[in-house]
Structures are given as structure tokens and as C-alpha cells.
Amino acid sequence: MPERRTLLRSLLAGATLALPLAPRGIAQIADAPAPDFPGIADWLNADVPPSLAALRGRVVLIDVWTYSCINCRRTVPSLNRLQAEYGVAGLQVIGIHTPEFGFERQRPDVEAAVRSLGIRFPVGQDNGFQSWRAWGIRAWPSFLLLDQTGRIVLRREGEGHMGEIEAAIRALLGLPPGAAGRAAAEDPDLSGIRTPEIHFGARGGPASAAYALDGRWSKEAEALVLRSAEGGLRLRFHAAKLHLVCAAPEPAALRVVVDDGTPATVTVERPTLYTLYDGESYAEHRIEVRATAPGLTLYSATFG
């Protein structure tokens, strides 16, 4: 089982791998040849399947992501901007979608996510984790920057690295360093998040003390499934936002109450990420989620 993206919490404050200094203004460098794109079942946003051989001579930024991951979703605007601004100078962004959950393997659902997120670069489906393993990926999202000879010169995990990545891209393209400040400003400040991501399935480890359940639930490999006619989730968290990866067999109106406030309704159906609380400031919160029909499936809770 690959590492969850909770690994990123300890890396967000400027993750640095033990790599030697690089020339031409690139802060750190892996200096390793990249394999091509092994195991890609399908390509989206591409008339011709990309290959590293065909991209030789261009700088390539590989984004390994999955569509239910809020950390991945938040980087899309920056990636689109990098492609738009530096594509003419020799940059190509490539997305590799490697599914965290089983429901993320279906092409129509990945296509829908690519459209809704507005992704404007090629995306390959790595359903068998072959590219993930070949590149030594550990978490969602991960970024690999390749120079014009196809060698990996920078690896980063999680959010908070777009300023560094843009500076490295400019250095590889022979551009002056001063204009990379916009990407740094786009990096979110996640220092106020004090609750780690929660995975509700058996593979996610023991139950977190942060949440409690009402009703009868079964614990599956990837999720908790409500088996009784009704049930609920009570969760304490310290963050500004709460996102729930969940699903229901039929459209289900969940009753959501935050901090004993006015109840709100969130309709859940297909498995994906739903925002249950979208606040502006970091604080301690309590949320109660109530379902009035069996089948609600809880995969994970993530915070922002």
C-alpha cells in the first residue's frame, strides 16, 4: 500500500530531500534518468500519447495526482499557469493520475474531473501504479522536474513548492530568476492545520480519537459503510475547511451542523470529494453529519 498523502503534513513546511546542489540556480537535483511512462492505460487531453523520447529537448514537469485529493486539486491553477506561460519557451506539464481509491480508476470519472478542474495539459491513467513504482513516488501529489536531456533534477511532495518549482523551470529555460514570485504567492499557507487526514477504511489504520460514529457501520478495506437505516459522524478538527471523500448509492441529503450552528444540507451521490465546511480562519471546530438512509460510504476526511 503506497503512503497516504498524510505523509505530506510533515513535509509542507519546505520539504527537502538529501540531494546535492545543482548548477544554474536549481536548488536541489536528483540527477537521475527518468523512465518513460510505463503502464499508462489511457491518455486524456492528448491527440498523441506523450513519451519522454518525443519530449527530449523540452523541460518536463510531471504531476502525480488523484482526483479526490484536495492537495492535488489546489495545485491545478498553478500548473495551468506554468504551462500557459512557459510552454512556448519549452516547458511541458504532464499529469499522471494514479488512483488512491478503487473508484478513481474509471476513465469517464477521471475525464469528468479533468473537465471540472479545468486541467489544460495531458493526463495519463496509471491504474496499475507502474509509473508510480518506476519513479519511486510515495505520496499525492508528487512533482518531478526533468531537464532537456530527460534527467530528473527536482523532486517535491505535497503543496507549498510552486515557487521553487517555477524558479527551477526558469533556470532550465535560461530565463532570469526574478519573475518566479507569483508561484510562491500561490502556495497555500497550511501551517494552521492541526488535524491530520483521516482514513476511515481498514487500510487507514486504527480509528482516530477525533471522530465518533452513530448507527451500525461496517469497516471495509477502503471505507466505512453505513448499514443501519440512519447514522452519523461526529468529528473534531482544527482547520479552516473540511473536505469529505464519500459516496452514497442514491442521492443522499446529509444534514451538516458545525459548532452547533444552523444546519446545512450537502447532497452526496457519486464517490468524490465534497466540501462540508469552508471557513476562512483556522480554529477548533465540531461537525456533525447525519444520514437518513443506509449506504453512506466514508473514505477520508481532509482539511484546509
Rank of each mutant, 00 (worst) to 15 (best):
S228G: 06
G136M: 06
W132M: 00
E104T: 04
F237E: 02
L233G: 02
L17V: 04
V110D: 00
I193A: 09
Y211F: 12
A212L: 04
D36V: 08
E85L: 11
S300V: 08
A223M: 15
G90N: 10
Y67L: 09
V88N: 10
K241P: 06
M162E: 00
R105A: 07
W65L: 07
A239Q: 01
A34F: 06
G279P: 07
L213Y: 05
E250F: 08
A89M: 14
E197R: 12
G304W: 05
A139V: 04
R170F: 02
G181Q: 15
E100M: 04
G95I: 08
I70E: 00
A264Q: 15
G192H: 13
A46H: 04
R227K: 13
L8Y: 03
L8M: 05
G102K: 05
V153Y: 11
A248Q: 14
P50S: 05
E284T: 15
D189G: 10
L52P: 02
I193N: 11
A15E: 07
L172S: 01
L235Q: 05
I40W: 04
R105F: 05
L82S: 14
A202G: 08
V64Q: 03
T265S: 12
F121I: 01
I62K: 03
G304T: 08
A283E: 11
I70V: 13
E197F: 11
A84C: 09
G150E: 12
G204E: 00
F143K: 13
L11K: 09
A168M: 10
W132Y: 01
T275V: 11
R155D: 02
I94W: 07
I137T: 03
R270W: 15
R270S: 15
R4H: 13
Y67A: 10
P23V: 13
S208H: 12
A229R: 14
P196M: 00
A84M: 11
L154Y: 09
P251I: 01
A18N: 13
T297A: 11
L175V: 05
L52W: 07
T75L: 12
G87F: 05
D42I: 07
S300C: 06
L12D: 04
E230F: 06
A168V: 11
V88L: 07
R290V: 12
T6K: 04
D31K: 06
Y211M: 03
A210G: 12
D189E: 09
V93F: 10
F37K: 06
T272M: 08
T195L: 14
D36G: 00
V257S: 09
I40F: 03
C246M: 15
H161Y: 04
A46E: 00
L235Y: 06
I40Y: 02
P35D: 08
E85Y: 03
